[in-house]
Design a protein around this nucleic acid. Sequence first.
DNA 1: GATGAATGAGTGTTCATTCAT
DNA 2: CATGAATGAACACTCATTCAT
Lengths: 198, 198, 198, 198
Amino acid sequence: MNMTNQVDQRSPRTQARIIQILDAATACFVEQGFHGTGMARIAERAGMSAGHIYHYFDSKDAIIAAIVERETSAHETKMREFHLLPCENLKHEMVARAEEGVRTNTDPFRSALSLEIVAEAKRNPDIAERLRRHDVIVRTEFARLLREKLQLDHAEGRVEVLFTLFDGLAIRMLRHPDLDQAGLTRFFRKAILAVLED
Amino acid sequence: MNMTNQVDQRSPRTQARIIQILDAATACFVEQGFHGTGMARIAERAGMSAGHIYHYFDSKDAIIAAIVERETSAHETKMREFHLLPCENLKHEMVARAEEGVRTNTDPFRSALSLEIVAEAKRNPDIAERLRRHDVIVRTEFARLLREKLQLDHAEGRVEVLFTLFDGLAIRMLRHPDLDQAGLTRFFRKAILAVLED
Amino acid sequence: MNMTNQVDQRSPRTQARIIQILDAATACFVEQGFHGTGMARIAERAGMSAGHIYHYFDSKDAIIAAIVERETSAHETKMREFHLLPCENLKHEMVARAEEGVRTNTDPFRSALSLEIVAEAKRNPDIAERLRRHDVIVRTEFARLLREKLQLDHAEGRVEVLFTLFDGLAIRMLRHPDLDQAGLTRFFRKAILAVLED
Amino acid sequence: MNMTNQVDQRSPRTQARIIQILDAATACFVEQGFHGTGMARIAERAGMSAGHIYHYFDSKDAIIAAIVERETSAHETKMREFHLLPCENLKHEMVARAEEGVRTNTDPFRSALSLEIVAEAKRNPDIAERLRRHDVIVRTEFARLLREKLQLDHAEGRVEVLFTLFDGLAIRMLRHPDLDQAGLTRFFRKAILAVLED
DNA sequence: GATGAATGAGTGTTCATTCAT
DNA sequence: CATGAATGAACACTCATTCAT
């Protein structure tokens, strides 16, 4: 069901190297953007030579593809947890999780990474395709949740608005880095509840 | 108070040239992104030589800065129109405008441009600063509107959520280009109304 | 009939630049081979920056392609001169020209260039194709000459051997740079005459 | 007198490894050229790791040097066989062997290898030197043969032309891969006989 | 004003070679 | 003996920017 959870055939050392590179690259991309980051800088931060990165990744593009894979994979796992929740009080549980989601998505690092991925998707069709495949999955599953567990009609439209809200946070943080999270969360909750209403 | 409304000292010809360049660059950036667009391409599209662009702009960065200026300026003007609306039925008028806003923000060209600017802000502090200055203005004015004309408390928090919704649309379009706009709009309206409720 | 003799649309300055680059590249390739020569060295020798070469040629490969074009073109012109010779004593004229050809093909620069092109053809299919197209032309024309003006049968086979002899000179020079040209020419003539005999 | 016939001090296993590497490298060089072949590819084809090749060869250059050594050595052995032939009918035997030589030298693999070596000699003085030392040997011996067994004067000049013919075949094959070998051979023979004539 | 020739620093990427294991 | 991780120098090529004309 989830190909990314396959047993990794690579040696522990190789896996560690890959994580080193991915972490270094993620940090660089967050700070300076994909195009603003040279392979040399990623290499330096990952503690290896630039040339050696090419033993693990075919190209710079392959690095961001792997980062996207890691992020979307984690996100899908998170989303899947909703299905395990009990039906009763699901709505309030969702609101609680949404509040946690606001905290996560307003984290400067996460929001910056999110934006960087989206920006790269704009000019890299492979990244765009990954993002869309991922979106289909979480969108469909989430709509099914609303339909089956909350007996809501027009689930797709509701999901679009909910996802729009969370997507918007990354840009919001960029425009207003010092926003009052408490004030935001208060009405975020109201908006979500309104979207989840009959 | 508004520097962008200063009488433009430049000759009409010069102004026309500048608009040519800005339009060409905007189109290029939307299609291929800021870093994917070379000065040569902008020049070609603007119908002049690459070198000549430097008579009007100091650098490539200055071009995107001018594009951002133009966009934020237009946006501020749009926002200011709300103050001219009659108090009665203001809420419904706002919802109506919001629906128009959804149409605008989901337009492929506008959403792409919006995203491109945001992406550039991530690595260009000058652009980020412009975006933030602009955000302060529209945020403050819009909050004042809610406070004074709709007698709403916690206006800042409400504004954050409203702006988050609109910002989110550009990303949403990227992730799900074929989304059903009608379904989205229906719950978008519900969310907005909830945020504007006492 | 000869596309390379079309009126050159390029400005004299551009033409001069192209010749500069071609001459510099030819010299470099002769001395250090195609793969042993960096763009920087060609640029230095041509008296311009490396980057600027790309205003005139799309790639390093395009440079060698142009060199091959220039060489084959000149060679075809040379070959075509045979058709203008009077029929009587044509055979002796050919032998005389052959002796001149030995001098040309044993010139260190020419033989080295010739070898470099052939070497490059081995791994660059585009170059190989150019060489083959050129060979078809000169081979066919030369065979026709033998057939029509010298009334020789099996003209193709004779041409192959004659061309083999001249092609061999470049390698011969590499293996024995100090060879006695007079001694060689003496028997070269005998071989040619034998091939041209009834 | 002949260093290549020294008793090989290396263990049979080592010798086998070296042959593996040499065969793999030869095949790679023929297919993709010396510069187009990476050590990784040679290693893969030889069935060992890239690093391990350096236990047997000091460098990539050393591999091609060894290939040249192997080729020239075999060629010298072949040439030496002429001395064992009876004097009578030697000329016709030589022509017969020449025809076999045409077949060998027009073999795609052999001609490609031959050209690759020559190309490498152009930029690697060590290879050039090996080729020249080898040429001195076979040239001298062959001239002695013509002088002593066929009573020919100007043996050196005759040898140059004969060798030029055989060297030319590799290039000829590149320029005209589909040439009619029978037609070529017919006049090849005539040329050789003419060169061997009093 | 307007051109486009020219620069040069910077890019991602390759690959022969080394060496710890 | 054998591996393959690791290096680093080299490479072709791009592009914003300048400037003589």
